[in-house]
Amino acid sequence: MLDDRARMEAAKKEKVEQILAEFQLQEEDLKKVMRRMQKEMDRGLRLETHEEASVKMLPTYVRSTPEGSEVGDFLSLDLGGTNFRVMLVKVGEGEEGQWSVKTKHQMYSIPEDAMTGTAEMLFDYISECISDFLDKHQMKHKKLPLGFTFSFPVRHEDIDKGILLNWTKGFKASGAEGNNVVGLLRDAIKRRGDFEMDVVAMVNDTVATMISCYYEDHQCEVGMIVGTGCNACYMEEMQNVELVEGDEGRMCVNTEWGAFGDSGELDEFLLEYDRLVDESSANPGQQLYEKLIGGKYMGELVRLVLLRLVDENLLFHGEASEQLRTRGAFETRFVSQVESDTGDRKQIYNILSTLGLRPSTTDCDIVRRACESVSTRAAHMCSAGLAGVINRMRESRSEDVMRITVGVDGSVYKLHPSFKERFHASVRRLTPSCEITFIESEEGSGRGAALVSAVACKKACMLGQ
């Protein structure tokens, strides 16, 4: 009897593995994704193909990295998701002549009506938060230079001027797309009239992360975010950046690689679950690469896999709870928690219980395998993109072996128990001629924006502006 049951459990697990095998990517698959990513990057950089390229390769006008001589107080704003952060950054000489960066910050959550109302409502709310922060720190009387981390696709015309191309991540505030974001912020500050600010720089969160990590390690020339969304930036040779005049030196390019796949480059790798996630998203047909990796989508992918296993009578005796059938019910943090389970399955059992399920031991094991399959594919897909960037940098610099540091931020990278190990191992397999160091950014977005502002202020002083 026991043997029969054991055989049935083994057969069930084997069927589960057959279904989950769809998520496995072979090294040849990853090399294919990497080569296609490089081709799209090239198209994004070139003037004649930029418009139709899915990977936009947006110039950021960040050319210099901090040298350690900029000092002063800077205000930093960070808008990239449902939370908005205001930070005071003091850049100065530390002990023994070292450079020191001290920060104080406060988080504000953005109400739904500000995210989806008008641009005026959104930026009025942001300036209200700045006003509140300055009151708390008794700094209303000071006109501070301000660095703005704005983590949406922007076409820069200068370091302090950028046109919002399109909202992502659930934002829909009308009247912002096609307009200068810094102008919208300046107008809102003017409307309030109770404080003055000098907006000197606007950067993407990947750029802010790279600059913040450069402060720790001067070989950091790539910034990457794996959180709600997924994106990367890197220092490109100016001669390859056709959208900006000049051939000397390097400029940081914001790849906006989340949109890779929007022209069909990933079609052969998309599964039924991916198509369902895409169809029910706020932007169907867009940001397809990001939807395979980002935390906004990972939990939902797992939920759809679990429903398939229920329908195949391989999980929960073929019956799903009402909660499990509800879109968004299986949160991405559950994926991390399930994979963090120590082996007694308590954590998995508790999560499934909150979803109205009474799982068996085998159910718990199957749910864990589903989570591992989805998150491992995410790590491997992400590795193909980064390997594409790094191999490109090595080739354009004609280096036999390139040493490089990548600064990384984002909740999936930082909080998932195995993502970074799987990701690092896969990147290294795909970049055999590179020695890569990964560092995690601390308060990256805010500190990085302030350091970019410090560079901009120093330049302005040198130019006598």
Rank of each mutant, 00 (worst) to 15 (best):
L2T: 04
L2D: 14
L2E: 09
D3K: 00
D3W: 07
D4F: 01
D4V: 09
R5A: 10
R7N: 15
M8N: 08
A10T: 11
A11E: 07
K12M: 15
K12E: 04
E14M: 14
E14A: 15
E14C: 10
K15G: 13
K15F: 15
L20V: 02
A21G: 12
L25E: 15
Q26P: 13
Q26H: 12
K32G: 04
K32C: 02
M34Q: 09
R36Q: 06
R36T: 03
K39M: 07
E40D: 03
M41Q: 12
L47F: 11
T49W: 11
H50V: 11
E51G: 09
E51D: 04
A53G: 07
S54H: 04
K56F: 10
K56Y: 14
M57R: 00
V62R: 00
R63M: 00
S64D: 13
S64C: 08
T65Q: 10
E67F: 11
S69D: 15
V71R: 03
G72Y: 00
F74T: 00
F74E: 00
L75S: 01
L75N: 00
S76M: 02
D78S: 12
G80R: 12
G81H: 15
R85K: 06
V86Q: 04
V86L: 09
V86W: 01
V89W: 03
K90R: 03
E93R: 07
G94L: 11
E95V: 09
E95C: 09
E96D: 14
V101G: 01
T103K: 04
T103N: 14
T103G: 03
K104M: 12
Q106I: 07
Q106N: 12
M107E: 06
M107Q: 11
Y108M: 02
Y108L: 03
S109R: 09
S109M: 13
D113M: 11
M115G: 12
M115K: 12
M115E: 10
T116P: 10
A119S: 07
E120F: 13
E120C: 07
L122T: 07
D124Q: 10
D132T: 13
L134G: 06
L134R: 04
D135S: 14
K136A: 09
H137A: 10
H137Q: 10
M139A: 14
K140W: 05
K142G: 04
K142R: 11
K142I: 05
K142T: 08
L144T: 07
L146S: 13
T149P: 06
F150N: 15
F150T: 14
F152D: 13
F152P: 14
R155L: 15
H156W: 15
H156V: 13
E157R: 12
K161G: 10
L164H: 12
W167I: 13
W167G: 14
W167Q: 14
K169S: 13
K169T: 14
F171C: 11
A173H: 05
S174D: 09
S174P: 03
G175H: 04
G175L: 10
G175K: 05
A176R: 04
N179D: 08
N179K: 11
N180K: 03
N180C: 08
N180T: 05
V181I: 10
L185K: 00
L185T: 04
D187I: 06
I189D: 06
I189L: 09
I189C: 07
I189N: 04
R191T: 04
R191Y: 04
F195K: 01
E196Q: 12
E196A: 08
E196Y: 10
M197A: 02
M197C: 06
D198I: 00
V200K: 00
A201T: 02
V203T: 06
V203K: 00
V203G: 01
V203I: 03
V203L: 02
N204S: 07
D205H: 12
D205G: 05
I211C: 01
I211D: 00
Y215E: 00
E216A: 03
H218N: 14
C220D: 00
I225S: 02
I225T: 02
I225D: 01
V226Y: 03
G227P: 04
G227F: 00
G227T: 04
T228M: 05
T228G: 07
C230S: 04
A232Y: 03
M235Q: 01
M235G: 00
E237V: 04
M238L: 03
M238Y: 08
Q239A: 01
Q239G: 12
N240Q: 05
V241D: 00
V241G: 00
V241Y: 01
V244I: 08
E245F: 03
G246L: 02
G246S: 04
E248W: 05
G249A: 01
V253R: 00
N254S: 04
E256N: 14
E256C: 15
W257N: 07
W257C: 09
A259S: 10
D262V: 08
S263N: 10
S263L: 08
E268H: 06
F269A: 04
F269N: 11
L270I: 05
L270A: 03
L270N: 04
D274M: 00
R275M: 10
L276M: 06
L276F: 15
L276W: 11
V277N: 13
V277H: 11
V277I: 14
E279I: 14
S280L: 11
S280P: 11
S281M: 08
N283R: 10
G285D: 14
Y289A: 15
Y289S: 15
E290C: 11
E290A: 13
G294N: 05
M298A: 11
L301Q: 06
L301V: 09
L304G: 07
L304Q: 11
L306E: 00
L306S: 05
R308S: 06
R308E: 03
L309M: 05
V310C: 13
D311M: 12
D311L: 14
E312H: 12
N313P: 01
N313F: 11
H317W: 12
G318M: 09
E319K: 11
A320G: 08
S321W: 05
L324T: 07
L324K: 00
R325M: 09
T326E: 06
R327V: 12
A329S: 15
F330A: 03
F330P: 00
T332W: 14
V335E: 03
Q337M: 12
Q337I: 08
S340M: 05
R345C: 06
K346L: 09
K346H: 15
K346Q: 09
Y349K: 02
Y349F: 03
I351S: 05
T354S: 06
R358S: 03
R358I: 03
S360Y: 01
D363Q: 00
D365M: 11
V367N: 00
R369F: 09
A370D: 00
R377D: 00
M381S: 07
S383N: 00
A384V: 07
G385S: 14
L386D: 00
V389A: 06
S396A: 07
S396I: 14
S398L: 10
S398Y: 11
S398N: 02
E399C: 12
D400N: 03
D400P: 01
V401F: 07
M402Y: 10
R403L: 10
I404A: 05
T405P: 01
T405F: 01
V406R: 00
V406A: 05
V406C: 08
G407S: 10
D409M: 14
S411G: 10
S411V: 08
S411K: 13
V412L: 13
V412A: 09
V412Y: 14
Y413W: 10
Y413N: 08
K414M: 12
P417R: 07
P417M: 15
P417G: 12
F419W: 13
K420I: 06
E421G: 11
F423G: 05
S426C: 10
V427K: 00
V427R: 00
L430P: 00
L430C: 03
T431S: 09
S433C: 04
C434A: 13
I436W: 09
T437G: 06
I439P: 02
I439Y: 04
E440D: 10
E440F: 12
S441M: 07
S441F: 08
G446P: 15
G446Y: 14
R447C: 12
G448T: 12
A449C: 13
L451G: 14
V452M: 12
V452P: 07
V452C: 11
S453T: 12
S453Q: 15
S453A: 09
A454H: 14
V455G: 13
A456N: 07
K458V: 15
K459S: 12
K459T: 10
G464F: 13
G464A: 11
